[in-house]
Amino acid sequence: VGQNTILEKTHEFFQMCDIENKGFITRRDMQRLNGGLPLSAEELENVFDTLDSDSNGYLTLDEFSSGFSEFLFGQKVS
C-alpha cells in the first residue's frame, strides 16, 4: 500500500471524525461517532484517550496519523 494512499486514507478518516472541519478532533466529536460506527461510547472514548498522546483534550492530525500507522504497521510513524 503506497505512502500516498495511507496519507489519503488518514486525511479521509480524520475528516470523518472532524465533521466541523476544525482541524482537530474533540472528545465530543468521537462520541458523536457512536451512531455511525459499531463501537460503544466507552470504546470511542478509549480510542480518543489512546490517540491523545499529550492528553490535552484535542486530537491533532499528527496524533491521529500516529495511531493509524500503529494500527497498520504495529509501530508509531509520525
Binding site: 478518516f13 460506527l37 480510542v47 500503529e70
Partner: peptide, 29 residues
C-alpha cells in the same frame, strides 16, 4: 501485568475503530 493488559486492550479498540472506519469508507457491510 495490568499495564500489559491495558495496552493490549487499547490496541484492540484502536484496531476495531480503524477497521470500522475502513469498512464504513468502502461501504462494506
Amino acid at each position: 501485568d495490568p499495564n500489559m493488559k491495558a495496552g493490549a486492550a487499547n490496541e484492540g479498540v484502536l484496531a476495531n475503530f480503524f477497521n470500522s472506519l475502513l469498512s464504513k469508507k468502502t461501504g462494506a457491510p
